[in-house]
């Protein structure tokens, strides 16, 4: 953990490479995520966002490079990494046959926490699921399922949370709910790494945005910083401020090898 003077980054990735057979998905990924910040990994389908998240949450091993989470190397201290993180995957990883409350109790027990029942009740209240707590998850709507999924990830208050496309498939209202949760988390000092293909999501939430393209992070900056990357000539034709979508497409389109 951070014993140095300067707060160490919550996540540090250097030269991460990963191939699946002939497919070279990650070709040397570097980035840092500051403690208590929201970092958005932005990229098209198949860019390797999920691969990075799976490596950081110890579900997959990288072929080369290093990665540390909360000060622990994912390769040499996987258990300490798992103590520090929580993963919310692309598909709501909830147990359909159990009730919402039972799902939360299950996770609290597996995290070896005292008073799992009380933890579950608190989480249900916090995520507006108290009324549905005794119902089977199979009867939940997509938004409720996602809320429960995220609530399960927050049990035990891990310092680092991974959200892999947390709002894919949600209606606009449910999306806003998730955004609110993410903001609250970061406000409490939790480090959040989220992947998304929705540019407005990154624009709304992220303190820092990494654009993953062809196996590398080709841009890594704050939203304001990314906006400066846009060629000034282009802005003359645009009336309003450029949206992140413009920046994203411009960077990807203009980017030859390297930065």
């Amino acid at each position: 953990m951070a014993t140095q003077q300067e707060p160490a980054p919550a996540i540090r990735v250097r030269g991460m490479e990963k191939s699946f057979k002939d497919l070279h998905v990650l070709r040397g990924v570097d980035f840092d995520v500051a403690q208590g910040s929201i970092y958005a990994l932005l990229g098209s389908n198949g860019a390797g966002k999920t691969t990075i998240i799976r490596i950081l949450s110890t579900l997959l091993r990288q072929d080369a490079g290093t990665a540390s989470v909360n000060g622990f190397d994912v390769g040499t201290h996987p258990l300490a990494v798992r103590q520090s993180i929580s993963l919310t995957g692309q598909f709501a990883a909830v147990d359909e046959i159990l009730t919402g409350r039972e799902n939360l109790v299950l996770v609290a027990r597996l995290r070896h926490l005292a008073g799992p029942g009380g933890i579950a009740d608190d989480a249900l209240a916090q995520f507006n699921l108290a009324d549905a707590g005794t119902r089977k998850v199979a009867t939940y709507s997509g938004g409720m399922r996602r809320r429960l999924d995220i609530a399960m990830s927050l049990v035990g208050n891990p310092p680092v949370i991974f959200l892999d496309e947390p709002t894919t498939g949600l209606d606009p209202e449910a999306r806003k709910d998730v955004w609110q949760v993410v903001r609250t988390l970061a406000g409490q000092g939790t480090t959040v790494v989220l992947t998304t293909q929705y540019l407005d999501e990154a624009e709304q939430l992220a303190d820092r945005i990494g654009i993953l393209h062809q196996g590398r992070i080709i841009a890594d900056a704050t939203l304001a910083g990314l906006k400066q990357l846009l060629p000034p000539a282009r802005t003359e034709y645009v009336e309003k401020q450029p949206s992140l979508e413009d920046i994203f497409l411009a960077i990807i389109g203009n980017n030859a090898p390297g930065r």
Binding site: R54, T58, L59, S86, L87, G89, F91, A93, D95
Partner: peptide, 13 residues
Amino acid sequence: QGGIFDRFHSMPI
């Protein structure tokens, strides 16, 4: 398939 296996595997169990 449902991802709950991954959830368990990413937990300190």
